[in-house]
Simulated assay, not measured.
Amino acid sequence: MNADMLLAAAEALPDPRGHAPAAPGAVLVGYGAVEELARFATDPGWTVHAPGHPVEVRRAIEHAVRRGERAYVHLSGMSNAEPRGVTEGFELVREGLDGVVAAVGATLDPVLRATAGLDLTVLYAVTVRPFDEVGLRTAVLAADHADVVLVEPGQPGLSARYVAETLVHVPHRLLALGGADGLDEAALARAIRGFLR
């Protein structure tokens, strides 16, 4: 269990006893609940965050509260070593030409270690919904191969439909891996290397 992720969520959530008027919307937090993550990710009325570091947890909750969003924040049992600056969309972490790996939340550090030495673009996202179509399409079109590996903390394929819709006019291949697979970085490395052309 990663107590820092839970503590960050507790500190960022507004005090319900406060006297300030409540903002519209709601922020729900789930810890390791991949079924809940999948449920909210299929509901277009919700923004869904899967932060990979305690700083990102605080930022996602505070951002959702300020904007009055209906937001679900998925907390993982893992944490990346360092926070990233992204709050919405994909952040370019590393550029490469042999394909694109999109890592969500706490999957980033294992993905970076698993793909070390490979000529791959690595994207990072904290926000699962809305899905960043422009960021993904831009990265795929810049690569020599339209091969996409999607690594998410929930069930495999959580965002596969969104990748397919984003790249509907781009012949591509997709490998969808999920945290529920229990993949460690060695298993990630084997799966990714086996998928690449």
Rank of each mutant, 00 (worst) to 15 (best):
A9E: 07
L92Q: 09
L7T: 09
G182S: 12
G45A: 13
V104N: 00
P156I: 07
E88D: 14
E82T: 08
V29D: 06
V122F: 04
W46S: 01
W46K: 00
R84P: 03
V27N: 02
T121R: 10
A160E: 08
P83C: 14
L112P: 01
H74T: 03
I192W: 07
V104P: 00
A3W: 05
V73M: 13
V134Q: 13
A103M: 08
E69Q: 15
T166L: 11
P51S: 09
A189K: 13
I61Q: 01
R67S: 14
H172M: 07
G68K: 05
Y124E: 02
G154R: 09
L136S: 04
L150Q: 10
T47Q: 10
G45E: 13
A186R: 15
A143F: 02
H49C: 13
V27Q: 04
P51Y: 07
Y72D: 05
Y162S: 15
A64W: 02
G30D: 10
D147C: 05
F195C: 02
M1P: 13
G45S: 11
V55P: 00
V101F: 03
V86D: 04
A114K: 06
A160N: 02
P130A: 13
R190Y: 03
R66W: 03
L196H: 02
V168A: 15
L123P: 06
D147Y: 05
H53I: 10
L37P: 04
A20S: 12
L196R: 05
H172L: 07
A60N: 04
P44E: 01
E62K: 14
Q155Y: 14
G135C: 07
P110I: 13
G135N: 04
D4T: 06
A191T: 03
V163K: 02
V55R: 10
R17T: 09
D184Y: 06
V48W: 00
G85R: 11
E165S: 10
D147F: 06
P110R: 11
G117N: 08
V149G: 03
E56G: 11
P83E: 09
E62V: 13
V65C: 10
S76T: 12
M1N: 09
E35P: 06
A146N: 00
T138E: 14
P21Q: 11
R67Q: 12
L7I: 11
E185N: 08
E185G: 12
L158A: 09
V55A: 15
A189M: 07
